[in-house]
């Protein structure tokens, strides 16, 4: 926590927050409205790779919308966001999700890879082929060949901070309130992985350069679509 505080105070005292003259007219934009969010989910990779704040710019809108509802409705827990979102409507959250989805921020440089070549090898197998023995599909079968996500519900796996990835798997695996209180296709897969695999994934993913585009739903096999029904069939996202 101290570290995050430190990072934030450095960032916020830097040029990014340099004061403009007091505006006579406040812009009637979403950018202005969601200022409280961009303090943490900033326009650069503000918090740096090691910090905990995930990137949300450019993620698929349906995914962001679902997460915002989850935070507001107590199905995913982060206090600062729960308080901010408490009194916002579905309609507004959808608009906020679409706004962040439309942003194109530069990605951070990949982290240095510290895995052994054997570990890298097994990660690449897991990511691109999965493990049929344990009924684990390839990560890329759902997250897209480039791992850049599949619109509108599956997020990119690249450009996320290490601590964040590790925490998400922790949440799914413990079934706690952080994430994964209600089981879904992703939490099921997370539960099947070993702790060593999770540790390696949290090293491997942030070390990948971010290239490529997110894919469209057509790339998903009907079997995988079926598997993720609880996520894909949530109401409220316009198709």
């Amino acid at each position: 926590m101290k570290f995050i505080v430190f990072i934030l105070s450095v960032i916020l005292s830097g040029p990014a927050m340099a004061q403009q003259p007091a505006p006579s007219g406040i812009p009637d934009t979403l950018e202005q409205r969601v200022k409280p969010c961009t303090i943490c989910h900033g326009d650069e990779d503000r918090a740096g790779r090691d910090a905990y704040y995930p990137r949300i710019a450019g993620k698929p809108a349906g995914y962001l919308f679902n997460q915002l509802r989850n935070f507001r409705d107590g199905k995913r827990y982060y206090q600062a966001m729960a308080i901010l979102l408490e009194n916002l409507s579905d309609e507004y959250l959808l608009e906020i999700a679409q706004y962040f989805a439309s942003l194109k921020y530069p990605y951070p440089e990949p982290a240095v890879n510290t895995l052994s070549s054997a570990e890298i090898q097994s990660m690449e197998t897991l990511i691109h082929s999965g493990d049929p023995g344990r009924d684990i599909p390839a990560c890329s079968a759902c997250h897209g060949k480039a791992l850049m996500g599949v619109k509108p519900y599956i997020p990119s796996l690249l450009g996320l901070p290490h601590a964040y990835v590790a925490a998400q798997f922790g949440g799914w695996r413990n079934g706690g309130i952080m994430r994964g209180q209600t089981p879904d296709c992703m939490s099921e897969i997370a539960k099947k992985l070993s702790q060593e695999e999770v540790n390696a994934l949290a090293m491997w993913l942030p070390a990948q350069p971010v290239t490529g585009e997110s894919a469209e739903m057509e790339v998903l096999s009907p079997e995988l679509v079926q598997r993720c029904q609880t996520i894909f069939s949530r109401e409220g996202f316009p198709q």
Partner: peptide
């Protein structure tokens, strides 16, 4: 609505 940031971490 427009929002007010939290300053507890800042």
């Amino acid at each position: 609505p427009y929002g007010m940031p939290s300053f507890q971490h800042i």
